[in-house]
Design a binder for these strands. Structure first.
Lengths: 134, 134
DNA sequence: CAGCATCCTACCGGATACTG
DNA sequence: CAGTATCCGGTAGGATGCTG
Protein backbone atom coordinates (compact mmCIF):
# COMPACT_ATOMS: atom_id res chain seq x y z
CA UNK A 1 0.00 0.00 0.00
CA UNK A 2 2.67 2.41 0.94
CA UNK A 3 5.50 0.49 -0.62
CA UNK A 4 8.08 2.29 -2.69
CA UNK A 5 7.63 0.15 -5.77
CA UNK A 6 3.86 0.42 -5.59
CA UNK A 7 4.27 4.16 -5.73
CA UNK A 8 6.71 3.84 -8.59
CA UNK A 9 9.52 5.36 -6.56
CA UNK A 10 13.05 4.61 -7.68
CA UNK A 11 14.44 3.89 -4.22
CA UNK A 12 13.28 0.98 -2.10
CA UNK A 13 14.90 0.46 1.26
CA UNK A 14 13.71 -3.14 1.36
CA UNK A 15 16.11 -4.04 -1.42
CA UNK A 16 19.51 -5.09 -0.27
CA UNK A 17 21.32 -2.94 -2.81
CA UNK A 18 19.39 0.31 -2.40
CA UNK A 19 21.58 3.23 -1.30
CA UNK A 20 18.73 4.54 0.83
CA UNK A 21 19.54 1.77 3.28
CA UNK A 22 22.87 3.34 4.08
CA UNK A 23 21.40 6.76 4.63
CA UNK A 24 18.60 5.32 6.74
CA UNK A 25 21.25 3.73 8.90
CA UNK A 26 23.07 7.03 9.32
CA UNK A 27 19.79 8.66 10.29
CA UNK A 28 18.50 5.97 12.62
CA UNK A 29 21.79 4.72 13.93
CA UNK A 30 22.52 4.90 17.63
CA UNK A 31 24.22 8.31 17.49
CA UNK A 32 22.81 9.62 14.23
CA UNK A 33 19.27 9.69 15.55
CA UNK A 34 20.22 11.50 18.75
CA UNK A 35 22.47 13.96 16.92
CA UNK A 36 19.76 14.90 14.44
CA UNK A 37 17.29 15.15 17.30
CA UNK A 38 19.57 17.49 19.20
CA UNK A 39 20.31 19.65 16.18
CA UNK A 40 16.60 20.12 15.59
CA UNK A 41 16.64 22.45 18.56
CA UNK A 42 19.10 24.79 16.91
CA UNK A 43 22.75 25.38 16.16
CA UNK A 44 25.39 23.77 18.37
CA UNK A 45 29.13 23.77 18.74
CA UNK A 46 30.97 20.47 18.88
CA UNK A 47 31.27 20.17 22.63
CA UNK A 48 27.81 21.53 23.23
CA UNK A 49 26.49 18.70 21.12
CA UNK A 50 28.63 16.24 23.01
CA UNK A 51 27.06 17.28 26.27
CA UNK A 52 23.58 17.26 24.79
CA UNK A 53 23.89 13.76 23.37
CA UNK A 54 24.61 12.11 26.67
CA UNK A 55 27.15 9.30 26.41
CA UNK A 56 28.54 9.92 22.94
CA UNK A 57 32.31 9.82 22.62
CA UNK A 58 34.34 12.41 20.81
CA UNK A 59 35.21 9.94 18.11
CA UNK A 60 31.68 8.76 17.43
CA UNK A 61 30.25 12.27 17.40
CA UNK A 62 32.89 13.27 14.90
CA UNK A 63 32.19 10.29 12.66
CA UNK A 64 28.44 10.76 12.95
CA UNK A 65 28.61 14.43 12.03
CA UNK A 66 30.78 13.69 9.02
CA UNK A 67 28.37 11.06 7.73
CA UNK A 68 25.41 13.39 8.21
CA UNK A 69 27.24 16.26 6.58
CA UNK A 70 28.16 14.09 3.63
CA UNK A 71 24.54 13.04 3.21
CA UNK A 72 23.55 16.71 3.11
CA UNK A 73 21.60 16.64 6.37
CA UNK A 74 23.93 18.76 8.47
CA UNK A 75 25.77 21.98 7.66
CA UNK A 76 29.17 22.58 9.21
CA UNK A 77 30.33 26.14 9.68
CA UNK A 78 33.96 26.53 10.73
CA UNK A 79 35.40 29.88 11.73
CA UNK A 80 39.17 30.19 11.31
CA UNK A 81 39.65 31.83 14.69
CA UNK A 82 41.83 30.90 17.59
CA UNK A 83 40.57 29.03 19.48
CA UNK A 84 38.59 27.51 16.64
CA UNK A 85 34.82 27.66 16.62
CA UNK A 86 32.69 25.27 14.63
CA UNK A 87 28.92 25.33 14.51
CA UNK A 88 26.65 22.59 13.29
CA UNK A 89 23.08 22.98 12.14
CA UNK A 90 20.51 21.14 10.11
CA UNK A 91 20.08 21.81 6.41
CA UNK A 92 16.51 22.12 5.08
CA UNK A 93 16.75 18.47 4.08
CA UNK A 94 18.04 17.60 7.52
CA UNK A 95 15.14 19.41 9.15
CA UNK A 96 12.69 17.48 7.03
CA UNK A 97 14.23 14.20 8.11
CA UNK A 98 14.66 15.27 11.74
CA UNK A 99 10.99 16.13 12.05
CA UNK A 100 9.95 12.62 11.04
CA UNK A 101 12.58 11.21 13.30
CA UNK A 102 11.42 13.22 16.29
CA UNK A 103 7.83 12.16 15.70
CA UNK A 104 9.09 8.59 16.03
CA UNK A 105 11.23 9.32 19.07
CA UNK A 106 8.45 11.10 20.89
CA UNK A 107 6.04 8.32 20.03
CA UNK A 108 8.38 5.80 21.66
CA UNK A 109 8.93 8.04 24.69
CA UNK A 110 5.20 8.53 25.10
CA UNK A 111 4.41 4.83 24.97
CA UNK A 112 7.38 3.71 27.02
CA UNK A 113 5.26 2.57 29.95
CA UNK A 114 3.40 0.19 27.66
CA UNK A 115 6.70 -1.13 26.36
CA UNK A 116 8.02 -1.74 29.86
CA UNK A 117 4.88 -3.53 30.96
CA UNK A 118 4.95 -5.65 27.81
CA UNK A 119 8.49 -6.63 28.70
CA UNK A 120 7.50 -7.68 32.17
CA UNK A 121 4.72 -9.81 30.74
CA UNK A 122 7.05 -11.41 28.21
CA UNK A 123 9.72 -12.17 30.78
CA UNK A 124 7.27 -13.64 33.26
CA UNK A 125 5.72 -15.89 30.64
CA UNK A 126 9.19 -17.09 29.69
CA UNK A 127 10.25 -17.64 33.28
CA UNK A 128 7.15 -19.75 33.83
CA UNK A 129 8.06 -21.92 30.83
CA UNK A 130 11.68 -22.41 31.95
CA UNK A 131 11.37 -23.08 35.70
CA UNK A 132 15.02 -22.82 36.75
CA UNK A 133 18.36 -21.65 35.36
CA UNK A 134 16.93 -21.54 31.82
CA UNK B 1 10.59 23.20 22.31
CA UNK B 2 9.77 19.61 21.62
CA UNK B 3 12.07 18.16 24.22
CA UNK B 4 10.83 15.48 26.54
CA UNK B 5 11.70 17.36 29.70
CA UNK B 6 10.13 20.56 28.46
CA UNK B 7 6.91 18.64 28.02
CA UNK B 8 7.29 17.14 31.47
CA UNK B 9 7.52 13.63 30.06
CA UNK B 10 9.15 11.00 32.24
CA UNK B 11 11.27 9.44 29.49
CA UNK B 12 14.04 11.30 27.69
CA UNK B 13 15.99 9.47 25.05
CA UNK B 14 18.82 11.98 25.31
CA UNK B 15 19.71 10.69 28.75
CA UNK B 16 22.17 7.89 28.76
CA UNK B 17 20.20 5.83 31.26
CA UNK B 18 16.72 6.17 29.77
CA UNK B 19 15.19 2.82 28.80
CA UNK B 20 13.59 4.43 25.77
CA UNK B 21 17.02 4.42 24.17
CA UNK B 22 17.06 0.65 24.05
CA UNK B 23 13.62 0.44 22.52
CA UNK B 24 14.47 3.13 20.01
CA UNK B 25 17.44 1.04 18.97
CA UNK B 26 15.26 -2.01 18.50
CA UNK B 27 12.90 0.05 16.39
CA UNK B 28 15.47 1.91 14.31
CA UNK B 29 18.11 -0.77 14.20
CA UNK B 30 19.26 -2.16 10.88
CA UNK B 31 16.76 -5.05 10.85
CA UNK B 32 14.20 -3.74 13.32
CA UNK B 33 13.22 -0.87 11.07
CA UNK B 34 12.83 -3.04 7.99
CA UNK B 35 10.95 -5.72 9.89
CA UNK B 36 8.46 -3.25 11.33
CA UNK B 37 8.11 -1.69 7.91
CA UNK B 38 7.37 -5.02 6.32
CA UNK B 39 4.88 -6.02 9.00
CA UNK B 40 2.99 -2.80 8.46
CA UNK B 41 1.71 -4.35 5.24
CA UNK B 42 0.06 -7.21 7.07
CA UNK B 43 0.65 -10.56 8.70
CA UNK B 44 3.63 -12.66 7.60
CA UNK B 45 5.07 -16.07 8.27
CA UNK B 46 8.71 -16.34 9.25
CA UNK B 47 10.11 -17.18 5.83
CA UNK B 48 7.80 -14.76 4.08
CA UNK B 49 9.30 -12.04 6.21
CA UNK B 50 12.76 -13.27 5.43
CA UNK B 51 12.17 -12.91 1.74
CA UNK B 52 10.52 -9.53 2.19
CA UNK B 53 13.39 -8.08 4.23
CA UNK B 54 16.03 -8.63 1.60
CA UNK B 55 19.36 -9.70 3.05
CA UNK B 56 18.36 -10.55 6.60
CA UNK B 57 19.75 -13.82 7.97
CA UNK B 58 17.66 -16.38 9.77
CA UNK B 59 19.45 -15.62 12.98
CA UNK B 60 19.03 -11.88 12.86
CA UNK B 61 15.38 -12.04 11.89
CA UNK B 62 14.75 -14.37 14.79
CA UNK B 63 16.57 -12.10 17.24
CA UNK B 64 14.87 -9.01 15.87
CA UNK B 65 11.41 -10.51 16.13
CA UNK B 66 12.04 -11.61 19.70
CA UNK B 67 13.14 -8.13 20.72
CA UNK B 68 10.14 -6.52 19.04
CA UNK B 69 7.79 -9.07 20.59
CA UNK B 70 9.25 -8.46 24.01
CA UNK B 71 8.76 -4.72 23.60
CA UNK B 72 5.10 -5.34 22.76
CA UNK B 73 5.36 -4.14 19.17
CA UNK B 74 4.88 -7.49 17.44
CA UNK B 75 2.46 -10.30 18.15
CA UNK B 76 3.57 -13.87 17.53
CA UNK B 77 0.92 -16.48 16.78
CA UNK B 78 2.18 -20.06 16.72
CA UNK B 79 -0.04 -22.92 15.61
CA UNK B 80 0.95 -26.32 17.01
CA UNK B 81 0.60 -28.07 13.67
CA UNK B 82 3.04 -30.15 11.68
CA UNK B 83 4.75 -28.61 9.87
CA UNK B 84 4.61 -25.68 12.28
CA UNK B 85 3.08 -22.39 11.21
CA UNK B 86 3.89 -19.11 12.92
CA UNK B 87 2.45 -15.75 11.97
CA UNK B 88 3.75 -12.37 12.97
CA UNK B 89 1.81 -9.14 12.99
CA UNK B 90 1.97 -5.71 14.54
CA UNK B 91 0.21 -4.92 17.79
CA UNK B 92 -1.70 -1.63 18.00
CA UNK B 93 1.36 -0.14 19.66
CA UNK B 94 3.54 -1.56 16.92
CA UNK B 95 1.33 -0.03 14.27
CA UNK B 96 1.60 3.34 15.92
CA UNK B 97 5.38 3.12 15.91
CA UNK B 98 5.57 1.64 12.42
CA UNK B 99 3.59 4.51 10.95
CA UNK B 100 6.06 7.07 12.26
CA UNK B 101 8.89 4.90 11.10
CA UNK B 102 7.49 4.56 7.60
CA UNK B 103 6.98 8.30 7.36
CA UNK B 104 10.70 8.61 8.03
CA UNK B 105 11.67 5.84 5.61
CA UNK B 106 9.59 7.27 2.81
CA UNK B 107 10.97 10.73 3.46
CA UNK B 108 14.49 9.38 3.04
CA UNK B 109 13.54 7.42 -0.07
CA UNK B 110 11.87 10.46 -1.58
CA UNK B 111 14.87 12.72 -1.01
CA UNK B 112 17.49 10.16 -1.91
CA UNK B 113 18.54 12.01 -5.07
CA UNK B 114 19.38 15.05 -2.99
CA UNK B 115 21.38 12.90 -0.62
CA UNK B 116 23.35 11.35 -3.45
CA UNK B 117 24.12 14.68 -5.04
CA UNK B 118 25.17 16.08 -1.65
CA UNK B 119 27.55 13.16 -1.34
CA UNK B 120 29.11 13.85 -4.71
CA UNK B 121 29.60 17.47 -3.75
CA UNK B 122 31.16 16.53 -0.41
CA UNK B 123 33.52 14.00 -1.97
CA UNK B 124 34.62 16.35 -4.71
CA UNK B 125 35.34 19.15 -2.26
CA UNK B 126 37.40 16.73 -0.20
CA UNK B 127 39.27 15.37 -3.21
CA UNK B 128 40.16 18.92 -4.20
CA UNK B 129 41.61 19.59 -0.74
CA UNK B 130 43.67 16.37 -0.72
CA UNK B 131 45.22 16.29 -4.20
CA UNK B 132 46.73 12.81 -4.17
CA UNK B 133 46.65 9.66 -2.02
CA UNK B 134 45.51 11.51 1.13
C1' DC C 1 38.15 24.29 21.50
C1' DA C 2 37.74 21.01 17.76
C1' DG C 3 39.19 17.47 16.28
C1' DC C 4 42.53 13.16 14.13
C1' DA C 5 45.42 8.83 14.92
C1' DT C 6 46.09 4.64 17.29
C1' DC C 7 45.08 0.71 19.96
C1' DC C 8 42.05 -2.66 21.68
C1' DT C 9 37.78 -5.10 22.86
C1' DA C 10 32.93 -6.37 22.69
C1' DC C 11 29.40 -7.75 20.07
C1' DC C 12 27.00 -7.52 15.70
C1' DG C 13 25.93 -10.35 12.38
C1' DG C 14 26.88 -14.01 8.56
C1' DA C 15 27.68 -19.09 7.53
C1' DT C 16 26.90 -23.55 8.79
C1' DA C 17 24.94 -27.46 11.08
C1' DC C 18 21.37 -29.39 13.78
C1' DT C 19 16.34 -30.03 16.06
C1' DG C 20 11.27 -30.63 16.41
C1' DC D 1 8.64 -24.86 8.19
C1' DA D 2 10.47 -22.45 12.12
C1' DG D 3 13.62 -22.00 14.47
C1' DT D 4 18.29 -22.94 18.03
C1' DA D 5 23.41 -23.65 18.64
C1' DT D 6 28.08 -22.82 17.43
C1' DC D 7 31.85 -20.81 15.32
C1' DC D 8 34.12 -16.88 13.55
C1' DG D 9 35.52 -12.40 11.21
C1' DG D 10 34.63 -7.44 10.74
C1' DT D 11 33.61 -3.46 12.74
C1' DA D 12 31.40 -0.35 15.97
C1' DG D 13 32.92 2.17 19.37
C1' DG D 14 35.51 3.39 23.96
C1' DA D 15 40.13 5.05 25.97
C1' DT D 16 44.13 7.44 25.37
C1' DG D 17 47.43 10.62 23.43
C1' DC D 18 48.55 14.34 20.19
C1' DT D 19 47.77 18.62 16.96
C1' DG D 20 46.56 23.35 15.40
Amino acid sequence: MTTAQEQGLPYDVFSRACPSRGTLEHVTGRWGALTLGALHEGSFRFNELRRRVDGVSEKMLSQTLQALERDGLVHREAQPTNPPRVDYELTPLGREVAERLLALIHCVERRMDDVLSARRGYDEARAARTPLTG
